[in-house]
Amino acid sequence: MNIVVCLKQVPKKDSILRIAADGKWIDDRDLSYEMSEADAYALEEALRQKEKHGGEVIVICMGPERVRQSIKEALAKGADRAIHLYDEAFDHASDAAGIGRALAAALKDEKFDLVFTGLQSDDYGFAQVGLVIAERLGLSSATIAMEVQPEEGGVRVKRELESGWFQWVKIPLPALLTIQSGINQLRYATLKGIMAAKKKELREVKAADLGLTADDLKPAQVIERAYLPLKSKQTEMIEGKPAEAAAKLVEKLRFDARVL
């Protein structure tokens, strides 16, 4: 069972985000980064499947030099090798179609049974790239997977539906699954793993290697303005030391909001 995991690196969850001077993106100076949460679960699921069924886990990641940190983390946790889409041309791929096209092109000649992605990234949150890869490579697919059971000729997947409902579906291989956060418990890399990762293959791929130009990756969707959400409500912020703030809040809830 060979499994490809698509990883994305995003600003850390607790980052304080500010708008960039041009008003079109966040100010990315002084940010720390990490693996997008759902992708970390996708990686963990792939490692667990490999431990049960054998095979190889290949991680693929697109982005600037900094994403190597996440690639190395994946290798240290147990992935066997990595592909890094590393080229200025990939900076143009900023919508799901462009990113999916580049990743699909890079995977076209790989031998795999399954491709895992997180269900959506913590930055753009398109929830599309995985399925674009599936469509371009003709893979069967299932999204928002909560359990993965390889079976003869296919894979049985427990999909999450809305409002506490679930459904098992069976699809043939090769298949792409988008993995829900929380499907498993994440592992930490061990020192041994970190040492072993240094010897693992990390292949760099340029756009030209895939026969792609910056023009091919030009987005159809362009962010023309990024801004902090307008408040939908007037929020009354309650200041003071914990005991004071608590007393004020209880008073407000009793006498102004009348909900206590």
Partner: peptide, 19 residues
């Protein structure tokens, strides 16, 4: 022009479509 949120609702974006 569509408005969608990024960074899990922390930031709004106005997205122009050229397609």
């Amino acid at each position: 022009v569509f408005t969608r949120q990024i960074f899990q609702g922390k930031i709004n974006t106005d997205v122009r479509v050229q397609a």
